[in-house]
Design a protein around this nucleic acid. Structure first.
Length: 391
RNA sequence: GGGUAGUUAGCGAAGUGGCCAAACGCAUCUGACUGUAAAUCAGACGACUCCGUCUUCGGGGGUUCGAAUCCCUCACUGCCCA
């Protein structure tokens, strides 16, 4: 569904700088050129990234000139935003492989037929010594060092490398090279994006707008982060995705509704208040439908109800055919089904009462279980199932 | 170039000769409770042939009955001086 200009500039948007009205006016007069920059660092894309991508796609759907900028030039530095340590440098081969992987994940959200792909290495690599001096003359070291993460690192005694403070300038130069009207990014990118605005004015006497998208929290309400394990990956399997959204903190729901759905926010708010569970199911179905399909969403929902609401055994699970009549439970968990990483772990889970076979709790780690032609169900923890069948 | 401090398990961070497989926090896992909510509570969290054994504390070498802890050396990093 295509949204109106006003909706695109308002819904799920943290801020438009210098102001929304002038940008809306421009968009009504002509096609604008805008871009979103990405670092091909091999990141696993999450719903957090999808906030940006979705917004970008909305502009593409309105028919504007949308550019996806691959930061193969800036990646040499690595955006230090929000980072408490320097990033490792990448080779060209890594960058290429990373982008292919990125594209695969992002294809669920982006329609690459409507989006131009551009590489900033094309102009950044061509910058001469004189160009660099001119570029650097636009800012003071104080301005560059003002940023939180640098101040934090200074306090913590962590290294700040010389090339890192140049990042905003190089990102800003992208705006000059492409002569864009608008840049998209997360609110954490505001500093970098405004640098582009400053430089574009200096170099080309041209106005540029900046649209900052909110940074969403993870499912547990904390900042979305790999180390918290609270993110939803875009290429996650439907069932996992559904489950993760269902385990999300209630407080985060409305934001997700605003960003990832077109539902009326007042109604959603009421629904969340009256029946948080139903609201979450609606949200989970919506997101799984978006990133997979409506049939996937429906079956994920059924699976969820079976496993966690009714505590029944699901219909579908991985099957393992064995050519023996009986097998020890621990090797079955580690070697056959991979439901435990090591024998120690398998033993631990068994001792903690987390394993059942054919509905019966296993208490002895050295138990030998039967393998029958009709198949029996191994359950490890509350969500790992496997069907064991005599071949 | 000189001085000095540091490099510990997935991450952060204690530990400065035996009581260290290494405190604590986060992440993770299991169980209870539940809307698989969240929160909370209980427990686990190197591996294995599991009441014992084996491999870990930046790399390498050494001292010692015994080292994450002492010494030498290499690598990387912070801070100070130049």
């Amino acid at each position: 569904m295509t949204l109106t200009v006003d909706q695109v500039l308002t819904r799920g948007v943290a801020e438009v700088l210098p102001q929304k009205e002038t940008l809306a006016k421009l968009m009504s007069e002509r096609k604008i050129r805008l871009y979103l920059g990405i670092d091909p660092t091999g990141a696993h894309l999450t719903l957090g990234h999808a906030v940006q991508l979705r917004k970008l796609q909305q502009f593409a759907d309105l028919g504007h000139d949308v550019i996806l900028l691959i930061g193969n030039g800036t990646v040499r530095i690595g955006d230090p935003t929000g980072k408490d340590s320097t990033r490792p440098m990448l080779t060209d081969e890594e960058i290429k492989a990373n982008f292919e992987d990125w594209k695969r994940q992002a294809s669920k959200v982006l329609d690459f037929d409507k989006i131009r792909i551009v590489y900033n290495g094309d102009w950044l690599d061509a910058l001469t010594y004189a160009d660099m001096v001119k570029l650097l003359a636009n800012v003071t070291v104080q301005q560059l060092m003002e940023r939180d993460m640098f101040q934090d690192r200074l306090k913590a005694g962590k290294p700040i490398h010389g090339h890192e403070i140049m990042y905003p300038l190089l990102q800003g130069y992208d705006s000059v090279a492409m002569e864009v009207d608008l840049e998209l990014g997360g609110t954490d990118q505001t500093f970098n994006m405004l640098m582009g605005r400053t430089l574009l004015r200096q170099y080309k006497q041209k106005e540029k707008w900046v649209l900052a998208n909110p940074i969403i929290n993870g499912t547990d309400g904390r900042k979305m982060s790999k180390s918290y394990g609270n993110y939803v990956a875009l290429d996650e399997a439907p069932n996992e995705m559904f489950g993760k959204i269902m385990s999300m903190k209630d407080e985060e729901m409305l934001t997700y509704f605003e960003i990832f759905t077109e539902e009326d926010l007042k109604e959603s708010e009421t629904l969340i208040k009256n029946s948080p569970r139903d609201a979450k199911v609606k949200l989970a179905k919506h997101i799984v439908t978006w990133l997979h399909s409506d049939t996937d969403a429906e079956s994920a929902y059924q699976d969820f109800v079976t496993k966690f609401v009714k505590h029944e055994v699901p219909d579908e699970m991985p099957e393992f055919k064995l050519d023996v009549d009986g097998i020890e439970i621990m090797p079955l968990m580690t070697d056959v089904t991979g439901s435990a990483a090591s024998k120690s772990e398998a033993k631990r889970i068994i001792e903690q009462g987390g394993v059942t076979y054919n509905g019966e709790k296993i208490t002895d780690p050295f138990d030998v279980v039967n393998v029958w032609p009709e198949g029996q169900v191994l359950k490890v923890g509350k969500r790992k199932f496997a069907r064991i069948i005599r071949a």
